[in-house]
Design a binder for these strands. Structure first.
Lengths: 127, 127
DNA sequence: TAGTTCTAAAACTATTTGGTTATATAAATG
DNA sequence: CATTTATATAACCAAATAGTTTTAGAACTA
């Protein structure tokens, strides 16, 4: 799996409330499929399917204990996802502060020379 | 939209590489639909659909400049998503360090009394 | 060995998703 | 006013998703 595919799988896995609840539960410790299924108004196979999605994304791993397949949360994909989010939040913040500076300059400009900036100045760059 | 529904929409929006690329581009500043579509091997309506998904998740807002509908990134949903991830990473870390302590204890125990811990001790809790 | 427990797989269904092409609408321009 | 430009909408399609019920298999238990 490429890094992009890993993000696809991770974010897709996180986009379901049942799966987020499962992860929340697993953050407290290992649990079996039936234990995980218990709070939900859905069949055991449905929960097994959700676990498969989480496993495919690397968010959950399983061991074996008798008939049970205890699930445990794996944190690495969550870290990758957080890193992606943080990177673009930082980019955005950098851009935002530049925009902020620009707006300050425009305001100063407007004070000395009224109407020098047209409302549709946005369009001038790519025309 | 409930907070859970917002997370659904945000994570689902982030689960597509095209949409992540669009957000990456928008982190650098506003752009029109055609500008956003340009790098992608897909039609303009396809990009418009992706933008609709991003807009529904609150990750993108649009203004109007002549015929154009400049898109801009909105950071709040990304913050909520990051917060969710961080919360469960912290929970997991807390649990992990407790597990760590437990393992230390077991190791010390094993040193004084060999074989006191069976491999299937996992099953003993819920039986 | 027979029965029970836990989990997975199979087969099916309805809905959603991500794309297409063709068309419509809105605003600017000649 | 006719044309061009930018975007959205409609209608369609294939594949994926999220659920179901039923069945199978693996491991313990009496």
């Amino acid at each position: 799996m490429t890094p992009s595919e890993r993000l696809d799988a991770t974010f897709a896995a996180l986009a379901d409330p049942t799966r987020r609840a499962i992860l929340a539960r697993l953050a407290l410790g290992e649990a079996s499929v039936l234990e995980l299924a218990e709070p939900f108004a859905m069949s055991q196979p449905a929960v097994s399917k959700h676990l498969k999605v989480l496993e495919r994304a690397g968010l959950v791993s399983r061991s074996r204990a008798a008939q049970r397949r205890p699930c445990r949360i794996e944190i690495d994909p969550l870290t990758e996802a957080t890193d992606w989010l943080e990177e673009y939040r930082k980019l955005w913040e950098a851009n935002f502060s530049r925009l902020d500076t620009l707006l300050e300059e425009l305001k100063a400009d407007a004070a000395s020379q009224v109407s020098s900036v047209q409302p549709n100045d946005f369009t001038t760059k790519e025309d």
